[in-house]
Amino acid sequence: MRTRRVHTAYIKIVRSFVTLTYELIKAMVEYARENGIKILPLCPFAKGRFERISEYADVLHQ
């Protein structure tokens, strides 16, 4: 069996990416609200975020 190590730097990069993605989705929702746009999240990560945050329902395309 081969073993791989997970380094702290890698975990920090992943956390930063997730945080950045959350902020991007939040900005996208704000933009959609201001401009009367509905969002159809095709990305599984974004789709999951929209399913978990009920406040985003007003801009979610059904």
Rank of each mutant, 00 (worst) to 15 (best):
A9N: 08
A27W: 08
F17C: 09
T3A: 12
N35L: 03
S16P: 00
F45W: 11
T3L: 12
H7D: 04
D58M: 03
I39M: 00
R52Q: 14
K47M: 00
A32I: 01
G36L: 02
G48I: 04
V29H: 00
V6G: 01
Y10R: 07
I37K: 05
E30W: 09
Q62I: 11
K12F: 07
E30K: 12
T19N: 12
Y10P: 01
R33C: 03
P44E: 05
T19H: 12
A46M: 13
I13N: 05
T21N: 14
H61I: 08
T21K: 15
K47A: 08
E51G: 07
S16M: 07
L20I: 06
E23K: 11
T3I: 10
P44D: 03
I13D: 07
E30S: 12
G36S: 00
E51S: 10
I11W: 02
R15N: 02
L60M: 06
A57G: 01
I11C: 05
K12L: 07
D58C: 01
I37F: 05
A57E: 10
A57Q: 10
T8F: 08
F45G: 14
Y56K: 02
L42T: 13
G48F: 03
E23F: 11
K38P: 08
Y22R: 15
I13Y: 05
P41W: 04
P41I: 06
E23Q: 11
M1A: 14
A27L: 04
Y31L: 11
I37H: 07
R5D: 09
F50D: 04
T3Y: 10
K38G: 07
I39Y: 02
H61R: 09
Y31I: 09
R33N: 01
T3C: 11
G36K: 03
T8N: 11
A32S: 01
E23S: 09
A27Y: 09
R33F: 04
E34C: 10
V6H: 02
E51H: 12
G48A: 07
K12I: 01
C43V: 05
